[in-house]
C-alpha cells in the first residue's frame, strides 16, 4: 500500500507547530504516533498534503501524577508503576488499547483524538468507491442511517472515558494562545461523527492535566470487544467513585465506543451522592444509562447486543470500582 505524497514538517516547539498549522490552514494534519492516521492515509481517507510531526516537541512529553504530555506513548504510561497505583482505571484503559505493538508508538494525545470509526468508512478507496462514498469522506450520504444527513461514526478511543471520570483537563494551544478546558469540552456533544471535536482547525493538544481530586478516585474501565487484543471498543465503560461509610461520596461514569463522542452521565450519577448504593440502585442506574444510548449498526457486534451490554458493563464497572475503593 502506498501513501499519497505529502510534505513532512518537524517543528520543535508548540508555537512553531501551531504557526505551521495556521499557515497551511486546512491542508494539514498533525501526526503523533501515526497508528491511527497512517492506516487512514493508506486507505486514502481525507488525506492532506502536509503533515506536521509532533515528535520533536519536548513540551509535549513528560509524565507526572498531575500532567501527561500529549506525546507520551501508551506503552510508557502502561508501564509507569506510579501512575498505575494512583490511577488504576487509566492503566486498565491504556493496557486495553489495540495491541502492544500499537501502544508502543501510539500516544495518549492521538488516542483522545482518534478518528471516529465506521464499517463503511474504515475501508479502502476501492471498497468505498464500489459502494459510493459517504458523508465522512468524499460522499454525500450515510450508509448506516441513510434517511439522516448525519454521520454516526463511533468514537472508539479507550482512554477518554477514564480521563473523563477523573475530571481531566486538556491543554490546547492555538494561533490565539493557550487554553485549558475540561476534557469533556473537547468533544462536541452537539456534533456528529464528522464534527466531533471542539478544536479549531490547527489547534494542538499539549497535555492532559489530572486534578488533585482525581487521586483518591478509584476508577475502573471495562471494555467490550470480540478479542482480547487488536479490537477497538464496541463499548467502553469507565466508572470512578468514592465511598464514605458505605455511602456514595462521589460517582462519575462515562461511556465510549457507542456514540460519536465519549459521554459522561453526570445527570444520572449526581443524584446518587449520599445514597447507599443498593443492587437495585445500581441496576436502575445501569438501565438508565442504557436507555440513553443508541448504538447503530456500524461495528462488528450487533447494536442490540452492544446496548444490552451497556447495562451489564455499567454494573460490573461499578462493582469493580467499589471493590477497588475498599482496598
Amino acid at each position: 500500500m502506498h501513501l499519497d505524497p505529502f510534505e513532512l514538517h518537524r517543528p520543535t516547539t508548540v508555537e512553531e507547530a501551531v504557526g505551521l498549522a495556521h499557515d497551511l490552514a486546512g491542508r494539514t494534519d498533525f501526526v503523533a504516533g501515526g497508528t491511527d492516521l497512517l492506516p487512514n492515509y493508506k486507505m486514502h481517507l481525507n488525506v492532506r498534503p502536509h503533515l506536521i510531526a509532533l515528535e520533536d516537541i519536548p513540551e509535549l512529553r513528560g509524565r507526572s501524577l498531575a500532567r501527561i504530555g500529549a506525546m507520551e506513548r501508551l506503552a510508557d504510561i502502561e508501564s509507569d508503576a506510579a501512575l498505575a497505583r494512583v490511577y488504576p482505571g487509566l492503566a486498565d484503559a491504556v493496557g486495553e488499547v489495540a495491541t502492544p505493538l500499537v501502544r508502543s508508538s501510539g500516544t495518549v494525545g492521538g488516542n483522545l483524538l482518534v478518528e471516529t470509526r465506521c464499517f463503511f468508512f474504515n475501508q479502502s478507496l476501492f471498497w468505498r468507491s464500489s459502494l459510493g462514498y459517504c458523508l465522512k469522506a468524499d460522499g454525500d450520504k450515510c450508509h448506516v442511517v441513510p434517511q439522516k444527513e448525519r454521520c454516526y461514526a463511533t468514537f472508539s478511543g479507550d482512554v477518554a472515558p477514564v480521563l473523563l471520570v477523573l475530571d481531566a483537563e486538556v491543554e490546547v494551544a492555538g494561533p490565539s494562545g493557550r487554553r485549558r478546558i475540561p476534557l469533556a469540552a473537547l468533544y462536541d456533544a452537539t456534533g456528529d461523527g464528522i464534527r466531533r471535536l471542539t478544536l479549531a482547525p490547527g489547534e494542538l493538544l499539549v497535555a492532559v492535566h489530572l486534578p488533585e481530586g482525581a487521586r483518591g478516585r478509584r476508577a475502573r474501565y471495562k471494555k467490550l470487544r470480540v478479542r482480547p487484543s487488536y479490537d477497538f471498543p464496541e463499548l467502553g465503560v469507565a466508572v470512578a467513585g468514592r465511598w464514605d461509610a458505605g455511602r456514595v461520596a462521589s460517582m462519575h461514569l462515562a461511556v465510549g465506543g457507542v456514540e460519536t463522542y465519549p459521554r459522561r452521565f453526570d445527570e444520572l450519577t449526581a443524584p446518587l451522592e449520599g445514597c447507599a448504593l443498593s443492587d437495585t440502585a445500581v441496576r436502575g442506574l445501569a438501565e438508565a444509562v442504557m436507555r440513553k444510548l443508541r448504538p447503530v449498526h456500524n461495528t462488528f457486534l450487533l447494536p442490540d447486543y452492544r446496548r444490552r451490554m451497556v447495562e451489564v458493563y455499567v454494573r460490573r464497572a461499578i462493582a469493580e470500582a467499589r471493590e477497588g475503593a475498599a482496598e
Binding site: L8, G33, T35, L38, A53, E55, L101, V102, S104, S105
Partner: peptide, 11 residues
C-alpha cells in the same frame, strides 16, 4: 518493538 508499516521512515 515498533510496527515498521506504521512508522514514517523520516521519523
Amino acid at each position: 518493538p515498533t510496527l515498521s508499516c506504521l512508522t514514517l521512515a523520516r521519523l
